[in-house]
């Protein structure tokens, strides 16, 4: 009888443990629907984002503050519209900030970096960052160099 009860207890606590671990793991990992914690989205239009991918990091002064959600083409101008999420709702970004595509190291992955401006008005959810610097494509750089040396 005692053994039976002990078995019931252990099986029951096994399930309770499983359930609590389930919730623990869901609390420490990210959710696909990442609207939690009041993260907000901004947009930016680039001439060239080559190498930038979804989930690429967004940084300010080298600190990761967000990630890229979506990259689509704007049909009228053939420029790239990037939607990015800023994780911290308390982090306010001045309206005259500049955003650029940079590369980690020489051959590393691409990321976005925001250089904050000095404006007193801040970007709100869904706003567009107007000042953008496109990605530097090495091939373009080389071809310019070749032209430059070719002239001589």
């Amino acid at each position: 009888m005692f053994k039976k009860r002990w078995m019931d207890l252990s099986v029951g606590s096994f399930f309770i443990l499983g359930l609590s671990v389930f919730f623990f793991l869901s609390s420490i990992t990210g959710q696909v629907s990442d609207e939690k914690l009041g993260a907000y989205q901004l947009r930016a239009r680039f001439d060239d984002v080559s190498g930038l991918v979804n989930r690429a990091l967004v940084r300010i002064s080298g600190v990761t503050v967000g990630q890229v959600n979506d990259i689509v083409i704007v049909p009228d101008t053939y420029s790239a519209m990037v939607t990015l999420t800023i994780f911290d709702p308390k982090l306010k970004i001045p309206a005259d900030s500049t955003i650029g595509v940079y590369t980690e190291g020489i051959l590393g992955s691409k990321y976005l970096s925001i250089m904050p401006g000095f404006s007193d008005t801040f970007l709100r959810k869904g706003d567009e960052i107007l000042r953008t610097n496109s990605a530097v494509v090495l091939e373009n750089l080389f071809s310019k160099l070749l032209l430059f040396f070719g002239d001589k």
Binding site: S26, I28, T29, G30, Q67
Partner: peptide
Amino acid sequence: FWTPLVFGSIYFEVDV
């Protein structure tokens, strides 16, 4: 240690 799990590319619905 814990922050990249929430804001990185580990998703509960996918990975776990």
